Amino acid sequence: MTAPIEVSGSDIEAQPEAVLAGMGGKVEGRSLGQIAWMRLRRDKVAMFGGVVVLLLIIMAVSAPLLVKWFGYPPSEFHQNYIDPSLQRPLHGPWHSGISSKFLLGVEPTTGRDIFSRIVTGAWISLLIAFLATLLSVVIGSTLGIIAGYFGGWVDTLIARAMDVFLAFPILLFAIALAGVVQGKVWGLSGNGLRISLLIFIIGFFNWAYIGRIIRGQTLSLREREFVDAARSMGARAPYILFRELLPNLLAPILVYSTLLIPTNILFEAALSYLGVGVNEPTPTWGGMLATAVPIYSIDPWFMIVPGLAIFVTVLAFNLFGDGLRDALDPRSR
């Protein structure tokens, strides 16, 4: 039997230093952001969604260059590629018009480049969704923090306002408002007015969703020790709200924003489909779907392309948002 190894007290005391020497004498801790990034990297599905989202954003931002390099102007007609009797593209698989000149084919009846219209429509759809989400997040987070921190009649007033906005028929209001607001308003007209109107409608009437979440989080945070410490040191309410509570609410705000963006994309597509979105000939994914419905039997490809664009975008944002939620709050799994 092997004799036990005797270790003197000096050897035991020297072990931590030896470990530190083997690690270069320096031990670094990880921040909460680094830990969250480590968890997010392990989630392959979320990373895939994040990569797709990043590629979509790059595609939308570089839309003019992509149209210039790989397509034709989105409003340019190419009637020579359309069968005059059947009103569908002459060439390409499934009569889609796909060729070396038109990467995704051409529209039936008009011959417009589908690739250029999809890329340009991505810029408009993502712009409306991002700005509307930003408006919702700013209003909802501000009112949610105020309601959760102060409580009392302030909380009651804001909570009842949330109930009203949650029960409000946004779609009907958007259709009515888009029909009433015409011409020139606040120096805006045409599609500039329509885009601003869509951002206002989608963003302003959706703030209650994130406001309710932030209010609930604030109710639990306001009883924490760091808030009591700041209050005992004489900190005023604005300081506590935006310097103590808001940094601890950034994780749920960020997560819910990534889940709110695809909802806003779908809402914009629905409004464009109903004819109260951006005016033609400016392309949007919802507007392309609305144009494709009456001629679906002639050319189903024209409906498949914008439908897939919406599906992939919404799915990518949802996958990334779910992974981000798990990374920032592992207890939510």
Results as ranks from 00 to 15, higher is better:
Asp113Arg: 02
Phe102Ile: 02
Gly50Arg: 05
Val67Tyr: 04
Val67Asn: 12
Phe70Gln: 06
Pro93Arg: 12
Leu86His: 07
Ile118Trp: 01
Val51Arg: 03
Ser100Asp: 12
Pro74Glu: 02
Ser116Trp: 03
Val67His: 05
Phe115Ser: 06
Asp83Val: 08
Ser85Arg: 13
Phe115Ala: 09
His91Val: 11
Gly121Arg: 00
Leu54Ala: 15
Ser96Phe: 07
Gly92Cys: 10
Asn80Pro: 00
Trp123Pro: 00
Trp123Ser: 12
Ser62Thr: 14
Pro89Trp: 05
Ile124Trp: 06
Phe70Asp: 02
Ala132Trp: 03
Arg88His: 02
Gln79Met: 12
Tyr72Asp: 11
Gly50Lys: 04
Asn80Tyr: 12
Met38Trp: 04
Trp69Ser: 10
Val53Lys: 07
Met38His: 11
Arg41Asn: 09
Ile118Met: 08
Arg42Tyr: 03
Phe48Asn: 00
Arg88Phe: 01
Ser99Tyr: 06
Thr110Arg: 12
Val45Ile: 15
Gln87Glu: 13
Leu103Ala: 12
Pro73Met: 04
Ala129Trp: 03
Gln87Phe: 14
Ser125Phe: 02
Thr109Val: 15
Leu40Glu: 05
Gly49Phe: 07
Ile114Arg: 09
Trp69Cys: 04
Ser99His: 07
Arg41Ala: 12
His95Phe: 12
Ser100Met: 09
Ile128Arg: 08
Lys68Trp: 09
Tyr81Leu: 15
Thr120Pro: 00
Leu86Val: 07
Leu103Cys: 04
Ile118Phe: 04
Pro74Thr: 01
Ile58Asn: 04
Pro84Trp: 01
Gly105Asn: 06
Val61Met: 10
Val106Pro: 04
Ile58Asp: 01
Gln87Pro: 00
Lys101Asp: 14
Ser85Ala: 14
Trp69Ile: 15
Pro73Asn: 11
Tyr81Gln: 13
Gly92His: 09
Ser75Arg: 04
Gly71Ala: 15
Phe77Tyr: 14
Leu127Gly: 09
Ser116Val: 03
Ile114His: 10
